[in-house]
Amino acid sequence: MDDLMLNQFLLLSAILFSTGVYGVLAKRNAVIVLMSIELILNAVNINLVAFGAHNGTIAGSVFALFVIAVAAAEVGVGLAMVLVIYRNRKSVDLDEVAQMKG
């Protein structure tokens, strides 16, 4: 246990990812679903950077940067959608958003 292991980071990332997936699937509040998506994206980022360090390339960091940028865009649009949903139904409960029911 002297050196850092690659797997440490990957397992941590796996925990974050699984937690995020649970959050996306199980939470009723749209804002929390967005937060869970952030968890997933961060897990991916840790993976990217860890593998970048592992292989000695800078590409991992660069792509992590791109992911951050995309995440910022996603949160912006996502929250705008949540606001629209709220404005239309006075609630952000995803259980009530069921127009797809035939």
């Binding site: 050196d3 850092l4 292991m5 690659l6 797997n7 440490q8 980071f9 860890a50 970048g52 360090a53 592992h54 292989n55 000695g56 800078i58």
Partner: peptide, 13 residues
Amino acid sequence: DEPLDQANASTQI
């Protein structure tokens, strides 16, 4: 239990 740093990787980073 692969180490994080492969040979000479850390210097480059």
